[in-house]
Design a protein around this nucleic acid. Structure first.
Lengths: 199, 199
DNA sequence: TGGTGCATGTAAGCAGTTACATGATTAG
DNA sequence: CTAATCATGTAACTGCTTACATGCACCA
C-alpha cells in the first residue's frame, strides 16, 4: 500500500499526470520510495476504479489521451488513514549482511570488491539524500515549494522540519553503512595479514 | 537468488531436511534473511531439479517421506560464484521514511505512536542481533560450532570474525534507527510546543 | 527528417505472503 | 489419549521487475 500512499501524497500537492508522477519518482520522492513507470500507470487506474482519484482526460493528437489525476475526498481520507495507522514492518532480508556473514568463503579480493561496492553504493545514496537536504534548506525543491503553497503558513515550519527529518535519517543510515564496510575492509586486511604471517 | 544462497550456505555446513532449514530461518539466519516454510520447500525442489542439491529420501511411516538435502559440487560452485560476484542493490523503498516525510499530515499523537513503534521494532531487532553476537563470542551458536567443525582450523578466526562483522553491522543500523526515531519524538514535541504557544 | 522529451501502456515472470491442508512420531 | 513437535506441501494473490510496444509534439 506504500506506492498508493506515495502517489496520494504527491497528488495532494496538486493534480498530475502519470508521466509527471513518474518524473517525481525518478527524482525527489524516488530517493525514498522507488517505483517504475510500468507500475505507476496500472496503479493509478486501480485507484481511479476505487474512487481515490479521478482522471481528467485531455485529448492529445488524434487518438492519444493525457490523464490528469485529482485526489478525491475518499483519496484524501485514505491517505490520512494510512498516516494515522500503525506502521507494518517486514522481516529482515538483507543480501549484503547475509554475504558478509559468509565472507570467509570468498576470495579476499572478491571480499574487498564487495565491500568497496557497498561503500560506493551508499556513498551515491548519501549524495542524493544530502542533495535533497540542501534543496530543503534552500527552499528550492519544486515539490516542497508547491506543497508550501497549498499549506497554511502556520504549518510551513512543520512541513519543512519533517522533510528534513526524513532525509536526515536516510543520510545517517548511509553513513552507518559506509562506516561498517570500511571497518570490513580493515578486517579483511587484518585477517589476510594474519594468514600470510602464518604461511 | 539470495534465498537460494542462504539455503546453500546452511547446507554446506551439513545435510538437512526442509524442516531443519526452516528452523534455522526462524532462528539464527532468520535474523539476517527471513524465509517462510511455504517458500523453502518449493525452492529446495527447484534446486534439486537444477542439480544444486540432492535429496536423500527417508521413509516416514506408511506414506510420509523425509528428504535430507545434500549440496552437490554444482551447488558448492554456485554458492562460491555468488560469493565472488558483485552485489546487486535494489532502489530504496522505505515505508518508515516515506511516512516520516509527511508527518505533518498525521495527528501529533499518531506521529508519536509511529515513532515509538519504530523504536520498539528496532529495539527488538537489536536484541536479536546482540543475542546472536553474544552466542558468537561465547562460541555456543550451534550452527557456528558445526561450521567450525567442517572448517580447517586456520580458518576458524576468519569464520568467527565475519559472522561478528555481519551482526555488528545490523546492530549498528538498529541503533541508528532508534536514535533517529528518538530525535523524531523530540522534533514532534518541539513543533507542538511551538503551535500551542502561538494559539 | 530525426532526435528528444512527452505520454501511455501490456505481458511475462519472479519473489514473497497468506491461507489452507494433511499426516506421523514422540513425550507426558 | 492428547498435545507438541516433526514433516511436507499447494493455491491464490500481491508487489515489483524486465522487456516490449506505440505514438505525439516540438525543435534543429
Amino acid at each position: 500500500m506504500s506506492l498508493r500512499s506515495a502517489l496520494l501524497a504527491l497528488l495532494r500537492v496538486g493534480p498530475m499526470s502519470g508521466y509527471d508522477l513518474q518524473k517525481q519518482f525518478s527524482q525527489s520522492v524516488g530517493h525514498v520510495w522507488h517505483a517504475a513507470d510500468s507500475q505507476i500507470y496500472p496503479e493509478l487506474r486501480k485507484m481511479a476504479n476505487e474512487g481515490l482519484v479521478v482522471a481528467e482526460e485531455q485529448p492529445r493528437g488524434e487518438r492519444g489521451v493525457r490523464r490528469i489525476y485529482h485526489v478525491t475526498d475518499a483519496g484524501d481520507q485514505a491517505f490520512l488513514a494510512w498516516m494515522n495507522s500503525p506502521p507494518e514492518y517486514q522481516r529482515t532480508r538483507d543480501a549484503a549482511h547475509l554475504r558478509a556473514a559468509y565472507l570467509e568463503s570468498a576470495e579476499p579480493d572478491a571480499a574487498r570488491s564487495f565491500l568497496r561496492a557497498h561503500i560506493e553504493h551508499w556513498t551515491y545514496e548519501l549524495s542524493c539524500w544530502d542533495g535533497e537536504l540542501a534543496h530543503i534548506e534552500a527552499l528550492d525543491n519544486p515539490m516542497l515549494v508547491n506543497r508550501l503553497r497549498v499549506t497554511d503558513e502556520r504549518d510551513h515550519e512543520r512541513t519543512i522540519a519533517y522533510k528534513r527529518f526524513a532525509y536526515e535519517g536516510l543520510a545517517a543510515r548511509a553513513r552507518s553503512e559506509i562506516a561498517w564496510a570500511q571497518h570490513g575492509l580493515e578486517t579483511v586486511d587484518r585477517l589476510e595479514r594474519g594468514r600470510s604471517e602464518r604461511s
